[in-house]
Amino acid sequence: MRRRTALAAGLALPGATLAQTPQRLRIGFAVGYAPFSEVGSDGQLKGFEVDLAQALCTRMVQQCVPVILDFDGLAPALLSRKIDAIMASMSITPERQQLMAFSTPYYFSPVRLVMRTDARLEASPAGLKGKRIGVERGTIHERFLAAQFKDSQVLRYPTQDQAFLDLKAGRLDATLVDAVIAQFGFLNRAEGRGFAFVGPDFGRQEQFYGKGIGVGMRKGDVATLGRRVDEALAALRGNGTLKALNDRYFSFDLVTPPR
């Protein structure tokens, strides 16, 4: 409880509130996803999505408070009104759109398998038949594996960091993850030595991965909160703030819509 209170203090922004939105906009994050959202050594929440949330709240003149949850707890918390929005690298997919609404996309990310460089396994359903693939529970990656890698052993984890630990320890043959999270959260670190991306970008399969990453919200809030978030995102894209945030964290472009 103390850590969540400290994190909330790190993002709360003063400002006037509007009648059509809550006095405090509670934004759900899932930590452990460097460089998108993680807890720093000072106990504060930081990362690309955290900075973007701050910029959105400033633009909307809205007081915002972060709520830290496991990824698979975000949608239930939104629908039960424990939070008001989600910023946790959540893909905009038809399945999720049945439950909630989304803003326009704010970034686009490839999806890759990570394996040992000496694994000599083909990154395909046939090549990974009977093999152990780790995935974060509640993500679209989990549903993709269930549909496309039916003959593999899919092991589900509360966080992606736990999957990386088991991959390093040899308890997994591969893990499926957003490529940026894998690059910054594992491959660029000492523990990622001897591992690499293998196979194609599965994120191009729109029937599973949708049309990018957006802010999740309740359908009933589309005309109010949704309109304000989209207007703020358009402004941040137009004035260069979104690209500047991209360049602060990445050496490649994640925010320009694919053509």
Rank of each mutant, 00 (worst) to 15 (best):
A19K: 13
D118Y: 06
E136S: 09
F197M: 08
V180C: 13
V255S: 04
R112I: 13
N246S: 09
L121Q: 11
G216Y: 00
R24P: 02
I140L: 13
N188G: 13
Q20M: 13
F252V: 15
A146M: 12
G130I: 08
R228Y: 03
T224K: 11
R171V: 10
A8N: 11
M60P: 00
R26D: 01
V67G: 04
G194K: 12
R120Y: 11
V198L: 08
F29D: 08
P158K: 15
E136P: 00
G47H: 01
A232H: 09
Q183M: 08
G238T: 14
V198T: 12
L79M: 15
V65C: 05
T104H: 14
S152H: 04
S152V: 04
F250Q: 04
G216K: 00
R81K: 15
D166P: 06
M87K: 09
A30W: 04
E206S: 15
R26N: 03
A34D: 09
Q183L: 09
G130L: 02
Q148P: 00
V222H: 08
P200S: 09
L18F: 03
V177G: 02
S251P: 04
L56M: 06
G240T: 14
S251C: 11
E142P: 02
G214L: 03
Y33D: 12
Y209Q: 11
R248S: 05
G28F: 00
A77P: 04
A12Y: 08
A126W: 06
Q63A: 10
F208E: 07
E38D: 14
S152I: 02
Y249S: 02
R59Q: 13
T224V: 10
R193W: 13
E49V: 10
A53M: 06
P105F: 05
V31I: 15
G15D: 03
N246W: 01
L225N: 01
P200L: 05
P257K: 07
V229Y: 00
R193G: 09
F108P: 02
Q205A: 12
K211V: 14
P14S: 13
R248D: 09
F195R: 04
P94Q: 12
Q44I: 04
F184H: 06
D42W: 03
V154F: 04
D201P: 00
A182K: 09
K219P: 01
R2Q: 15
Q205S: 11
L13M: 12
A77V: 08
Y157F: 11
D173V: 03
